[in-house]
Amino acid sequence: MALISTTPMLEKAKQDQHGIVAFNVHSFDSIFWVLEAAAELKSPVILQTTVGTVQSLGAKNIVAVAKAASEHYNIPTGLHLDHCTNFEVIKEAIQAGYTSVMIDASMHSFQENVVKTNEVMNLARSLGVNVEAELGKVGGVEDDIVVAEEDAQKAIPEECQLFVELTGVPTLAPAIGTAHGIYKGKPEIDFGRIAEIAKLIDVPLVLHGGSAIPDEDVRRCVSLGMAKVNVSTELKNAYSEAIRKHFEDEPENLDPRSYLQKAKEAAKEMAKSKIKMVGSEGKVVPAFV
């Protein structure tokens, strides 16, 4: 199966009231084990990369590997560029074959955010590429984008409505109290704000900072209209911890096939738990395959 736009995938998820997990992948092998996990559960999935990963691996190389893996596992797969502030990098990703991109202009004024989002929309719309934008400021660290806790701002529902009207953006990530990375305390998610935003706009919403949020809270977010749930930190932590444990238990075993297989299995189990959490298990339908 070829890579597909995440727009219809997320619209259907919203309609059917389940989520789709967008897993950050940081290496070529991670693309395969994320899709293997999704295939075993018959779930649509989104691969997403940061700008740093694009710079490290190359957009064309990522697309080639993602296409090969998607065709091998034969499940609906989107490829998303996350949190990008640079139009030229977005353009590169689209030209390479990404099916979804995020323009993050949330650090600018509302008006400037609209202008920058429309610039990307003008490029992506005719190609069927999904565009994601952000309103408010999600706290935490994502590559070189750092938003201190005191600077995080929640999205204003009326501004979300106006923003979608002015841009036509098909997916929106409103800041609702989550943060990137692992939480130091219990996340203070503003469920009422999600519900209010969802009443005002029809497009699927995106939950950023999905790592380590209690499952019941994520499910509630999904039920309120958060169709895309981003997971990064927990996935790479599971992978890395398995490698660390291997060398603690078997310091003389330097065979990469041994420790990488353990890391893969740990990450796959984490991915599967997230897919089950959002309710997308078994959601691959004939229209997609």
Rank of each mutant, 00 (worst) to 15 (best):
M1G: 00
A2D: 14
I4D: 09
S5Q: 11
T7P: 01
Q17L: 13
V25I: 14
F28W: 06
I31Q: 03
F32D: 15
A38K: 11
E40L: 11
P44A: 04
Q48C: 06
I62Q: 11
V63R: 07
K67S: 11
K67E: 15
A68P: 00
I75M: 01
G78I: 11
G78S: 04
D82C: 12
T85M: 14
T85N: 06
V89E: 13
V101E: 12
D104S: 04
A105Q: 05
M107H: 15
Q111A: 15
V115W: 01
M121F: 03
L123I: 14
R125K: 14
S126G: 02
V131E: 01
A133T: 02
E134Y: 06
G139P: 02
G139D: 00
E142G: 03
E142D: 09
D143V: 10
I145G: 04
V147P: 09
E150S: 15
P157D: 14
L162T: 14
E165F: 07
P170R: 00
L172H: 04
G177W: 09
H180V: 03
Y183D: 01
P187H: 11
I189T: 07
G192K: 06
G192L: 00
R193S: 01
I197D: 11
D202F: 08
V203P: 00
L207F: 00
P214M: 07
D215S: 05
L224W: 07
K228P: 09
N230S: 03
N230I: 04
S232W: 09
K236S: 14
N237G: 00
R244M: 06
D249Y: 10
E252S: 13
D255I: 12
R257C: 08
Q261I: 02
Q261L: 14
Q261T: 14
K262D: 11
A267S: 11
A267D: 04
K268H: 02
K276N: 10
K283P: 08
K283N: 08
V289T: 08
